[in-house]
Nucleic acid binder design. Structure first.
Lengths: 231, 231
DNA sequence: GCCTATGTGGAGGAAAATATTCCGGTTCCT
DNA sequence: AGGAACCGGAATATTTTCCTCCACATAGGC
């Protein structure tokens, strides 16, 4: 009868922010991290509506363990969101700090960041997750901080003359949020296409265009091959 | 016991291509069209995995009617796919015939075509639908014809000098397939964003950039408003 | 090494979502 | 009018998903 009343509610509101309650046994902590890592991957690919068991399997853990650590899906989503937003923020700051120009920082940030995908997915695509995020003050804080950083790069790039003046942070975020959905399959097309699209989109953003595209042009024959032969 | 053996298989393979079997009573035909129309809308928005009853309701029809006309989901998907591919093909040909330049034809085709969205969704995003399409010779024919048309516009635009030379039909299709997923919600952001993205992407494709963007720049504050206040 | 609080896996029953059948009643067509 | 074709949706079957529970395992202080 260890559970005092309100324990669950507290856990759900603030999550396990490292310092909460008893400091988890070593293996428990490891499992918890695996769960979040697995959920991060799967949420990115399939959205936050996948059955809990899928996540448990991917984390090499029993469903029981998952439920013990996260009382319901919302708790899990919340934890993943906090973790993910923090990562994105870190990446953004690193880009800004390490790249010579604002444009380079922007490009690096957008290119390297698979994490960003998940953030946008959680915040803007999935209605369920959006609610969870709105109700979690910590996540909300991360989100604000992130947007501040983005704002500063975007405006700096415009001051540099590398980013067109008729867009703003919202446009940039929206544009790249479109890279969300994966093409099904795992052939060359599915692998190369996102990079090419990314480059084309960056050319669209740039004040003057002209970047070379990676890979070779994808023809309609490529699409055919993607549709027909696998089996 | 009207159903001779093989009837279902035949119906599934070729679908009701207007001339199949007995020519359907008037009300039946009407209902069938409503079903396909409804399915088209819903598939576009939510993908082809929605419960059958949702489609029936949207078509103002009982589930029974739906199942009578389409023995299973695959049959429905097949019918919608044929209908949709045919529409896209028509739109493509109209664009090519009526626009003065290849670039204009391309832009019009990509802009106006909500249908295209569904085609790409069915053919490339949903694995289930992809299988159905692959197994249906008629749909396959449509798809080839469509890609031929696309090929010709793309190459014509390149010959004109309006489309960059380092892309091909596959790139164009992929890029716009990204416009698939909607942002959740129905506020200004959700309404304006797609158009802006479309224009940015076209700028990225264009040999020289410079189109004015519709609407006003979306700021990070716009994103905030989208996330917080509704209720 | 031993002991116990803490943690684990996953079977299994409850609940929800979805698919599919069936038939009394209605509508079209000649 | 009259019969074949068709309709709606309640009822039933099936599948998916959730979540609890407990016999067994392990970490880690002593």
């Amino acid at each position: 009868m260890r559970e005092s009343p309100g324990w669950r509610a507290l856990g759900k509101a603030y999550g396990m922010t490292a310092d909460s309650e008893t400091p988890l046994r070593a293996d428990a902590r490891r499992n918890r991290d695996q769960i979040i890592a697995a959920a991060r991957t799967i949420f990115t690919q399939q959205g936050p509506d996948v059955p809990m068991e899928v996540i448990a399997r991917a984390a090499a853990v029993g469903v029981g363990t998952l439920y013990r650590r996260f009382p319901d899906r919302d708790a899990l989503i919340g934890a993943v969101a906090r973790d993910n937003f923090a990562r994105v923020l870190t990446e953004a700051r690193a880009s800004i700090a390490e790249e010579p120009t604002a444009w380079d920082a922007l490009v690096r940030f957008l290119r390297q960041s698979r994490e960003l995908k998940l953030s946008v997915q959680l915040a803007m695509v999935s209605p369920v997750a959006a609610v969870v995020i709105r109700d979690d003050p910590l996540t909300d804080e991360f989100r604000r901080a992130l947007l501040d950083e983005l704002d500063s790069v975007v405006h700096a790039a415009q001051a540099e003359g590398t980013l067109r003046k008729d867009v703003d942070t919202g446009d940039v975020a929206m544009l790249f949020s479109l890279l969300l959905r994966q093409i099904s399959g795992d052939d060359e097309l599915a692998r190369v296409a996102p990079e090419r699209c990314m480059t084309l989109m960056l050319d669209g953003l740039r004040a003057q265009p002209g970047s070379p595209l990676p890979g070779r042009p994808l023809t309609s024959e490529d699409l055919n091959k993607h549709l027909t032969p696998p089996t």
